[in-house]
Write a protein that binds this DNA or RNA. Structure first.
Lengths: 142, 142
DNA sequence: CTTGAACCTCTATCAGCTGTAGCTTGTATC
DNA sequence: GATACAAGCTACAGCTGATAGAGGTTCAAG
């Protein structure tokens, strides 16, 4: 029987985060001691590790919920898990593209600025005027 | 004298967002009509455009606050604006690196999965076991 | 003068946690 | 069995950066 702190250490998840996952129904309600403390078994540990690893790979909690449902029913076809992963891959690729456009603008901004007074600062000038930009870059709604 | 909706249309910022920027002190408190509606001038429009463009380039509202302060005092050296932009560039580069590691893992995951039953789904297997990963990827705290 | 689009304030909501306050429990040591 | 204290508990506020909705008021065109 594992205490919440042990789960926390073994998975690198904060104690509050584990309680939060229980609250939103990602983790099952943990069993309790007579005094009311949560106790876990190896299955709980595995589930939490799955969640954390998925988060590290950028999956949303909603996607993780779907993936866990799939993992709980081993008889189904895995094509759904596959498509969740593909969707995630697509999103990551989109974000990379957007960030690369940003990077380009930022580099140009920084490179052209020669450290004179604010009045002729290239950085501020570019920020003031979007038409100075070469690319479409938009991090809002990323 | 411009109404809030005009500012909204001219900068592509939602009306609520403009009010929010006023609330958190990014935009100055707008003048009001006798009936209490906000009215703006061209300077306000420029300021909002600056904020929006900075957001599109991924700057945080705190960074934008600093940049606006600098832009308001044209006599200073621009080295501070420069370093804010460099910091932002560094963060963008970090995020790109992290996302590329993610992308690599996701591609491998998806490529190796051949659509059989969930029981032998490669996607789910990788999620279960981080040791199957080739790279360090961590999107948490990005 | 009437209409109705656009404005107002206030409050709640989203993801995904994180932190704090104030209290209780479990366990190791004596 | 007593004691100390780390680790647990609940409940709630706060973070970023907005966005949505309810319910009411104002402005400007016709």
């Amino acid at each position: 029987m594992l205490a919440i702190g042990t789960l926390s250490r073994r998975t690198g998840t904060k104690v509050q985060t584990i309680r939060y996952y229980e609250e939103i129904g990602l983790m099952n309600e943990a069993g309790r001691t007579a005094g009311g403390q949560r106790r876990y078994d190896e299955k709980d540990l595995d589930r939490l590790a799955f969640i954390r690893h998925s988060r590290q790979l950028g999956f949303s909690l909603d996607s993780i919920r779907e993936l866990l449902d799939l993992a709980d029913n081993p008889a189904q076809s895995c094509s759904e898990a596959d498509s969740i992963a593909r969707r995630q891959l697509g999103q990551v690729e989109q974000r990379i593209k957007r960030l690369q456009a940003l990077k380009k603008e930022l580099r140009r901004m920084v490179a052209e600025c020669d450290g004179d007074s604010v009045a002729e600062c290239k950085v501020l000038e570019v920020l003031r005027d979007h038409s100075e930009c070469l690319t479409e870059h938009n991090e809002i709604g990323a």
